[in-house]
């Protein structure tokens, strides 16, 4: 028997590579997830998030790099890794032909729980995930949100110390999405370590303590949501003029006060300007008043992760192809 030195890192991965033919889906990604944190992997469709997660979960062989989970080598000890990680996939991986309770019981039995213990765990999880009334319903009768919750419950039945959530809310309506977020927050309060992938910038912002931004198989940024946002500049001032004809004059005033070129948004009859400090907004407004220019609205906004993504990669999060999805099939 070997005692693995206790490590503070739940996941330590260096130089992960996965190629599908000529396509480098994951091209040298390093990840360090500390124990007890929620770590978000953010990127558009096809960036390599799911592929990275699948390699760490032993579902795909690694083509390059090293990875360990709680100190256990992923490549050499796949069976041990599977005992440490609960995986919830993008598509609910539960059995259509079984009821909610039967699904959880089966997954419990497969992982060595006694029949009665598996029953108790299943009942408890169904209760916790608000699925108690659906326990004897076949999954084919479940709604999308219920399936996802059951799927998450299924990955918790063996109480794994690390949970992988692969795009947990993709395709859910906003209300169900909010419920799923609450469930994930509860999970984290219970002390689990979570590695989460998402293409939704607000989801990473809401749930993750630290975020790695991935684009085209490469990690392009990492930090807390606030650090990432600060890296783009602190806030944006959005202005709309009462008379769109005065926009050019107003832009000249903004340029003078902030020493920064505002971005005109003609369709909105206004402009956006980066503020080094939110307080400088007042200077701009006073200067506009003194010049006799009248504004219809003025808002100061913290940068969104969308802007972060733009700033880091030079393109928006939405415009990437689904190349990886196609190749991965």
């Amino acid at each position: 028997m070997t005692r693995v030195p206790d490590t503070d890192l739940a996941v330590a991965a260096a130089g992960l590579v996965k190629t599908f033919g000529d396509f480098r889906a994951v091209d040298g990604i390093d990840l360090e997830v500390r124990r007890g944190e929620v770590f978000g992997v953010l990127g558009p469709n096809g960036a390599g998030k799911t592929t990275t997660l699948k390699m760490l979960a032993t579902l795909l062989p690694m083509d390059g790099g090293e990875a360990s989970i709680f100190g256990v080598d992923v490549r050499r000890n796949p069976h041990m890794i599977r005992q440490l990680v609960g995986v919830t996939g993008q598509y609910a991986s539960v059995d259509e032909n079984l009821t909610g309770h039967e699904n959880l019981w089966l997954f419990g039995r497969l992982q060595g729980l006694s029949s009665s213990r598996a029953k108790a765990m299943a009942a408890d999880l169904l209760e916790r995930f608000g699925l108690a009334e659906a326990r004897d319903k076949q999954i084919s009768a479940f709604s999308g949100g219920m399936r996802r919750r059951l799927d998450l419950a299924a990955s918790l039945i063996s109480q794994p110390p690390l949970i992988f959530l692969d795009e947990p809310t993709t395709g859910l309506d906003p209300r169900t999405r909010g419920q799923m977020w609450d469930t994930i927050r509860d999970l984290v309060r219970g002390g689990s370590t979570v590695l989460l992938t998402t293409q939704y910038l607000d989801e990473a912002d809401q749930l993750a303590g630290r975020i790695a931004v991935i684009d085209r198989g490469i990690k392009v940024g990492e930090g807390t949501p606030d650090e990432l946002k600060t890296s783009v500049g602190s806030s944006t001032l959005q202005l709309r003029m009462s008379d769109p004809a005065e926009t050019a004059d107003a832009a000249a005033v903004v340029r003078r006060v902030l020493d920064e070129e505002p971005v005109l948004t003609p369709e909105a009859g206004g402009m956006n300007a980066a503020l080094p400090d939110a307080n400088r907004a007042a200077d701009v407004l006073i200067a506009l008043r003194q010049s006799g220019l009248s504004i219809a609205s003025a808002t100061v906004q913290k940068p969104t992760l969308d802007e972060v993504f733009m700033a880091i990669t030079g393109h928006s999060a939405e415009d990437e192809t689904d190349a990886e999805m196609e190749v991965a099939r």
């Binding site: 609910a92 259509e96 497969l110 992982q111």
Partner: peptide
């Protein structure tokens, strides 16, 4: 081809 086989693969079985 069903989703549940993804889970079977991820389980320590």
């Amino acid at each position: 081809d069903k989703g549940v086989f993804d889970r079977f693969k991820s389980l320590p079985i």
